[in-house]
Amino acid sequence: MHRIYVHPLPVRIWHWINAVACVMLVLTGVQIRYVGLVDVVPFRIAVVVHNWIGFVLIANFFVWFFFYLFSDKIRVYHPELNPIKYYRGNLRQLLYYGYGIFKGAPNPHHVSVYRKFNPLQSMTYQIIMLILLPIQCFTGILLWDLKRFSGMVAFFGGVRVVDTVHVLIFTVFVFYILFHAYLGTLGRTPSEKFKAMFNGFEEVEEGESADGTE
């Protein structure tokens, strides 16, 4: 076993700010949407906090965006363009989580500096970071000040359309946050992946090369 540095400091800072912000946004979002069922903080406070954290999340998004844009680490997000490799990789990973893991089979993906995500992770993170999160931030900004953005809101079909998109992505994030946290426990030890996101180092088996090939 040896350690490789896969999570640079900016990425770790972004990740944890993003994690805390997302959880806070979900919680305040639930408070805003379900007044009466949930009465932890007053509606108005929840709205104000939700708005502020939303802007923190947007600013933080650009930390992630510009770090990867101006770093060779962006390779970790490069999609697999070969469809056979793409589907085979996803299927292998899916079979591992759905069956192999129960038998104690080894994870088919081997972490390296430039391929730290398994195929399912890579696909999920691309969808979330490049599609869902930007749309969520955009609809959030529109809902933050409907009056200011009334023309754009009307262009997209009205406040209910914008809100419905915002709530649908919120629903996806609720599932994602819970499932993502669980998948984080599926390392060699339950805490391995969490520690890696704090100190930046992942432990890999001897013989695994830095570019992910064995």
Binding site: I32, R33, Y34, V35, G36, F43, A154, G157, G158, V159, R160, V161, D163, T164, V167, L168, F170, T171, V172, V174, F175, Y176, I177, L178, F179
Partner: peptide, 28 residues
């Protein structure tokens, strides 16, 4: 689609989205 111009958070929320939220929470 029909009432694009009126929405009050919480007060007029769409029931169908509540069902999806519960499913997501339960699934998660």
């Amino acid at each position: 689609e029909s009432i694009g111009g009126f929405y009050a958070i919480g007060g007029t929320r769409i029931t169908f989205l509540d069902v999806l939220f519960v499913l997501a929470l339960f699934g998660g």
